[in-house]
Every structure is written in structure tokens, then in C-alpha cells.
Amino acid sequence: MIYCHNYNHVIPCLHCHPHSYIRMVQHLIERCLLLYMNRQQCVKALAKYASIRPCITITVWRELEKENKDFFEAYFQALSLQAFYGHI
């Protein structure tokens, strides 16, 4: 993992290593998807547990949606079924 030597961050620094930081956020979003979280739940979880600003999580989420349209269509359908029938 890349660390910010100026500030001793234990995670990649957005300002010093933006590419690594965005990749880390993407990985965390993917972990939220495995837990069948919707975007709002993911944003709240990353803000609370990883101190990721909501605007960053939302931006990365939107880019993932653009790049993976078929996946997200199926994912949102699964979330709808989960809400209708209860936990999958």
C-alpha cells in the first residue's frame, strides 16, 4: 500500500496518490456490493468506517455504474427483489 509520507496516512492519500485512493474507494464499494448495500448505505458506511467523503464515494459509484451497466441493472433488480421478498 502507498502511504503519504508527509502526513503518515495509513491509507493512500487523495492528494498525494489520487489514483491509489480512487482504487481503494472502488474496492470498498465492491465490498459493499457483496453485502447487497444500496448506494446510500454504501456512502454512509464508507463515511463512517473509512472516513471517505460522500462526494467521492458517489462519484466513484457513478463511474462504476457507467462502466458496468449490465451488472448494475441486475444488481438493482436483486435489491428490489430483496426488498420485496426479504433478505436473499
Score class of each variant (00 low, 15 high):
residue 18 P to F: 15
residue 39 R to E: 07
residue 38 N to M: 02
residue 16 C to E: 11
residue 8 N to L: 14
residue 17 H to L: 11
residue 52 I to M: 09
residue 57 T to H: 08
residue 83 A to F: 01
residue 13 C to Q: 11
residue 42 C to N: 09
residue 10 V to M: 15
residue 12 P to A: 14
residue 35 L to D: 07
residue 66 K to V: 09
residue 53 R to D: 09
residue 9 H to C: 15
residue 3 Y to S: 14
residue 57 T to R: 10
residue 88 I to L: 00
residue 4 C to F: 13
residue 85 Y to C: 12
residue 69 K to G: 11
residue 75 Y to L: 02
residue 22 I to Q: 10
residue 27 H to I: 00
residue 69 K to Q: 15
residue 33 L to C: 05
residue 71 F to M: 10
residue 27 H to R: 03
residue 18 P to V: 15
residue 70 D to F: 08
residue 16 C to R: 04
residue 56 I to T: 09
residue 78 A to Y: 00
residue 55 C to N: 11
residue 21 Y to C: 04
residue 20 S to F: 14
residue 31 R to I: 05
residue 86 G to R: 05
residue 56 I to N: 07
residue 82 Q to M: 14
residue 81 L to G: 08
residue 50 A to K: 07
residue 58 I to R: 07
residue 30 E to S: 07
residue 43 V to A: 05
residue 7 Y to W: 12
residue 8 N to T: 09
residue 84 F to R: 05
residue 2 I to P: 01
residue 52 I to V: 15
residue 25 V to H: 06
residue 5 H to D: 05
residue 69 K to P: 08
residue 37 M to T: 02
residue 31 R to C: 03
residue 71 F to V: 08
residue 60 V to G: 04
residue 21 Y to W: 03
residue 41 Q to S: 06
residue 71 F to D: 06
residue 80 S to I: 05
residue 56 I to D: 03
residue 70 D to Q: 12
residue 56 I to L: 07
residue 47 A to D: 01
residue 9 H to L: 15
residue 81 L to Y: 12
residue 85 Y to T: 14
residue 87 H to M: 07
residue 25 V to W: 00
residue 25 V to I: 12
residue 55 C to T: 02
residue 18 P to L: 15
residue 24 M to L: 15
residue 35 L to Y: 02
residue 75 Y to V: 08
residue 12 P to F: 13
residue 37 M to H: 10
residue 17 H to W: 12
residue 2 I to E: 11
residue 43 V to L: 03
residue 9 H to A: 11
residue 29 I to K: 07
residue 22 I to D: 03
residue 83 A to G: 00
residue 29 I to A: 02
residue 6 N to H: 14
residue 55 C to V: 09
residue 31 R to N: 00
residue 39 R to P: 05
residue 61 W to G: 01
residue 18 P to Y: 15
residue 14 L to Q: 14
residue 41 Q to L: 06
residue 44 K to M: 04
residue 46 L to F: 01
residue 66 K to T: 13
residue 52 I to T: 14
residue 49 Y to E: 13
residue 46 L to R: 04
residue 77 Q to G: 04
residue 9 H to D: 12
residue 6 N to I: 10
residue 42 C to Q: 00
residue 62 R to D: 09
residue 50 A to W: 09
residue 31 R to E: 06
residue 46 L to T: 03
residue 29 I to F: 02
residue 72 F to I: 07
residue 33 L to E: 02
residue 35 L to Q: 03
residue 19 H to E: 15
residue 85 Y to D: 08
residue 71 F to P: 05
residue 25 V to Q: 01
residue 6 N to S: 12
residue 53 R to F: 07
residue 5 H to L: 14
residue 1 M to L: 13
residue 70 D to H: 09
residue 63 E to G: 07
residue 31 R to Q: 06
residue 72 F to V: 05
residue 62 R to S: 12
residue 14 L to M: 06
residue 84 F to M: 02
residue 62 R to Y: 01
residue 32 C to V: 10
residue 66 K to W: 09
residue 33 L to T: 00
residue 16 C to Y: 02
residue 6 N to V: 09
residue 28 L to E: 10
residue 61 W to P: 01
residue 35 L to F: 01
residue 83 A to M: 04
residue 78 A to M: 06
residue 76 F to A: 02
